[in-house]
C-alpha cells in the first residue's frame, strides 16, 4: 500500500483528496500547513506528497527545500498543487525539485493518474 501525504490549508480540498485517494487504496496522511507536513513526512516517510504552495507560516517551497536537504526525504515524490500558474512559477517549482506541477483547480481523475504514473515510473 502506497503512502500519500496531502498538504493544504483548505479543509474542503483536503477532504475531497482524502476521499479520492483512500478509494484508490492509498494510505492517506494529512497536514494543514508546511510545518505539520515536515513533521509527518519525517515520521511516516510517504511515497508521494501533494503540496500546496501558498500556506500560512511555512509555505510549500520551504517544505520542498527541506526535503531536498535531508537525504532520507529527498527521494519522496512531490507534486505541487497551486493556484499560481504563471510559467515562471511553474519553472521555479520544477527547478526546486518538484516532480510535477499541477495548477488549481484540477481534475480529480487527472490528478490520480499523475500520481499513479509517478509512482510506477520507478
Amino acid at each position: 500500500m502506497k503512502k500519500i501525504l496531502i498538504v493544504d490549508d483548505e479543509p474542503n480540498i483536503v477532504m475531497s483528496l482524502e476521499y479520492i485517494f483512500k478509494k484508490e487504496n492509498f494510505e492517506v496522511f494529512i497536514a494543514r500547513d508546511g510545518a505539520e507536513a515536515i513533521e509527518i513526512a519525517e515520521e511516516n516517510f510517504p511515497d508521494i506528497v501533494l503540496l500546496d504552495i501558498m500556506m500560512p507560516n511555512v509555505g510549500g517551497y520551504q517544505v520542498l527545500k527541506h526535503f531536498k536537504r535531508k537525504s532520507e526525504l529527498e527521494d519522496i515524490k512531490v507534486i505541487f498543487l497551486s493556484a499560481k500558474n504563471k510559467t515562471s512559477d511553474i519553472e521555479l517549482g520544477l527547478q526546486l525539485g518538484a516532480d510535477k506541477y499541477v495548477s488549481k483547480p484540477f481534475s480529480n481523475r487527472k490528478l490520480v493518474n499523475e500520481v499513479k504514473k509517478l509512482l510506477t515510473e520507478n
Partner: peptide, 8 residues
Amino acid sequence: TPITSIRA
C-alpha cells in the same frame, strides 16, 4: 481555492 474545492 473555493473553486478548486467545489470542483473536487
